[in-house]
Amino acid sequence: MLHKTSAFTGEETGGFQDAADERFIDTLEMSWVTSSEGAATFRPGDAPPLRGTLSVLGERELALYATGSIEFYRTYPGMYIQRSIGIRPVTPARDPRELAAEVLALTKMNWNQTRLDGRLPVTLRTANQVKSVLRFCPPDQAVATRYAHYM
């Protein structure tokens, strides 16, 4: 699974597929995960959508609420109105519900906080954390390759 916050270009898609073929990787899934989606979902009454609510807007366009009301707590634990994230698979190979369930599971993987969820999957959150450190490094400086250096 490969996540990115912008659309994949044809060159990127081809390059990643070539690299996967070189390493004998059978399945490569690439998805563009947007920070917000233009669509909104509403529930009856004044309760926000449940965490995990998925709207299939098209074959390559999904809206997933990675945050939202939690049935167990019977409330929404957030301070702001939640927005869905967009999931845009490059080549839809699986059922949209399976893809969304995987992304939702990845939003729970956060070792540095006690929250039960995050808005973005750990794949993107980790990249953002590393980026926030590396932007202060001079271009000619060698950088650490292990994620533990950036935690």
Rank of each mutant, 00 (worst) to 15 (best):
7 A>P: 13
7 A>T: 10
7 A>Q: 14
7 A>M: 06
8 F>I: 04
8 F>A: 00
8 F>Y: 14
8 F>K: 09
8 F>E: 01
8 F>M: 01
9 T>I: 09
9 T>H: 12
10 G>F: 14
10 G>M: 07
10 G>A: 06
10 G>T: 06
10 G>C: 03
11 E>H: 10
12 E>A: 01
12 E>P: 03
12 E>L: 03
12 E>I: 02
12 E>C: 00
12 E>F: 04
13 T>F: 11
13 T>E: 07
13 T>L: 04
14 G>E: 08
14 G>K: 09
14 G>C: 01
15 G>T: 00
16 F>Q: 10
16 F>G: 09
16 F>Y: 15
16 F>V: 09
16 F>I: 09
17 Q>N: 02
17 Q>A: 00
17 Q>C: 00
17 Q>D: 03
17 Q>Y: 11
18 D>L: 10
18 D>N: 12
19 A>S: 11
19 A>Q: 13
19 A>G: 05
20 A>K: 12
20 A>L: 00
20 A>F: 10
21 D>T: 11
21 D>C: 00
21 D>N: 13
22 E>R: 13
22 E>I: 03
22 E>A: 01
22 E>Y: 10
22 E>W: 12
22 E>P: 04
23 R>D: 03
24 F>R: 15
24 F>L: 11
24 F>H: 15
24 F>Q: 15
24 F>C: 13
25 I>L: 08
25 I>E: 06
25 I>V: 10
25 I>T: 03
25 I>W: 15
26 D>T: 08
26 D>F: 11
26 D>R: 14
26 D>Q: 14
26 D>L: 12
27 T>C: 04
27 T>E: 09
27 T>V: 01
27 T>D: 03
27 T>G: 00
27 T>N: 05
27 T>M: 01
28 L>T: 00
28 L>C: 00
28 L>Y: 07
29 E>L: 00
30 M>R: 08
30 M>N: 02
30 M>W: 12
31 S>E: 04
31 S>D: 02
31 S>H: 07
31 S>P: 05
31 S>F: 05
31 S>M: 02
31 S>Q: 06
31 S>W: 07
32 W>G: 02
32 W>K: 10
32 W>F: 15
33 V>K: 08
33 V>R: 08
33 V>P: 06
33 V>Y: 09
34 T>G: 08
34 T>A: 07
34 T>L: 03
34 T>V: 02
35 S>A: 12
35 S>M: 10
35 S>V: 06
35 S>E: 12
36 S>Q: 11
36 S>C: 13
36 S>W: 12
37 E>W: 08
37 E>N: 10
37 E>K: 03
37 E>D: 08
37 E>Y: 08
37 E>C: 03
37 E>Q: 06
38 G>V: 04
38 G>T: 07
38 G>R: 13
38 G>C: 05
39 A>P: 11
39 A>V: 06
39 A>E: 09
39 A>N: 09
39 A>I: 02
39 A>M: 02
39 A>Y: 14
40 A>I: 08
40 A>Q: 13
40 A>G: 09
40 A>H: 10
41 T>W: 11
42 F>C: 05
42 F>L: 02
43 R>D: 14
43 R>H: 11
43 R>M: 12
43 R>G: 11
43 R>I: 02
43 R>Q: 14
43 R>C: 15
44 P>K: 11
44 P>L: 05
44 P>G: 13
44 P>N: 10
44 P>Y: 08
44 P>T: 04
45 G>D: 05
45 G>M: 00
45 G>F: 07
45 G>V: 03
